[in-house]
């Protein structure tokens, strides 16, 4: 049975005119790393909120359909039960930092304190999580003294430290430097290999293709396409619908017109592009 199961999920916020999610059906298996792409306003963040239980429990509005994670139904659970299994990192890390803690170390322990993890274990888990995301040197800094990208790493780490079974990430690398971005994709991949299920909203096609198992393309609240990364990310359907593509894809598409790309498949990653262009 699928670890995540969305059946006919339709949702409208209290103040929006039409539904933001329309009839979404989606199954994800345990340990799968799924990436969600789509233009602004496609419903990507709302889908994250739905998986994390904020839709409809916190935002209210009109909800129909059913969301199941690990066999439990969102409609029959309370938000505080739900968050024990599901962790969400917000798009804007500033919205996530508690404001109640003076140091990054304390900030990272905040979630663990709230679920009653013993003090000694808490310290070990915070230190492990900081090492994993490469922020050990920020431990004593104030969360508010950090740069945007550093704050984003702290926000991600504050979720990883909770060891959720389902990790939901809403553009977790949007403010990160390029090599840091690649490292975060690597960390998330490792988490998935250890059995954590991951749903990650992202725009960076090259790294999605390199690290994710499957891509879901959303548009106007509906699933436009889903499948293996290379298959989805090179589809003409995406370009026609205003999705971004990697420079490897767009350049090879142009080269194909001029007879300079001879493979059947377009590339998304560097290796695929090298393979197709080399003489």
């Amino acid at each position: 049975m699928a670890f995540i199961n969305l059946q006919n999920v339709t949702y409208k916020y209290p103040l929006t005119k039409g539904p933001v999610l329309q009839n979404i059906n989606l199954q994800v298996r345990e340990g799968e790393f799924v990436s969600v792409i789509g233009p602004n306003g496609a419903g990507k963040s709302t889908l994250c909120y739905a998986l994390a239980g904020f839709v409809p429990h916190f935002f209210k509005g009109e909800f129909s359909g059913e969301i199941e994670v690990d066999g439990k139904q969102s409609s029959k659970s309370t938000l505080d039960e739900w968050v024990l299994n599901v962790g969400l990192a917000f798009q804007n890390p500033f919205n996530q930092i508690s404001g109640a803690k003076y140091t990054v170390f304390e900030e990272l322990a905040f979630g663990l304190e709230n679920i009653g993890v013993p003090r000694d274990e808490m310290k070990v888990r915070v230190e492990e999580a900081m090492a994993l995301t490469g922020i050990s040197d920020l431990a004593d800094r104030s969360p508010y003294s950090l740069s945007g990208g550093q704050q984003q790493r702290v926000a991600l780490t504050s979720i990883l430290v909770m060891r959720p079974r389902l990790l939901v990430l809403d553009e977790p690398t949007s403010q990160m430097d390029p090599i840091g971005t690649r490292e975060v994709f690597g960390v998330v991949r490792r988490m998935a290999e250890q059995g954590m299920t991951v749903v990650m909203v992202e725009h960076k096609m090259e790294w999605i293709a390199e690290f994710a198992d499957r891509v879901i393309a959303l548009k106007e609240g509906q699933i436009l396409m889903e499948g293996r990364p290379n298959e989805v990310l090179t589809s003409d359907l995406l370009t026609e619908n205003g999705f971004g593509v990697s420079r490897y894809t767009s350049t090879a598409r142009e080269a194909k017109k001029r007879g300079l790309w001879r493979k059947d498949h377009l590339p998304v990653t560097l290796d695929e592009a090298v393979e197709g262009f080399k003489k």
Partner: peptide, 18 residues
């Protein structure tokens, strides 16, 4: 650039590899 965690553009990396 790697010293400051920056990758060259995608096409620059491709050009180098080719």
């Amino acid at each position: 650039l790697a010293q400051t965690y920056v990758d060259p553009p995608q096409l620059t990396r491709l050009g180098k590899r080719l």
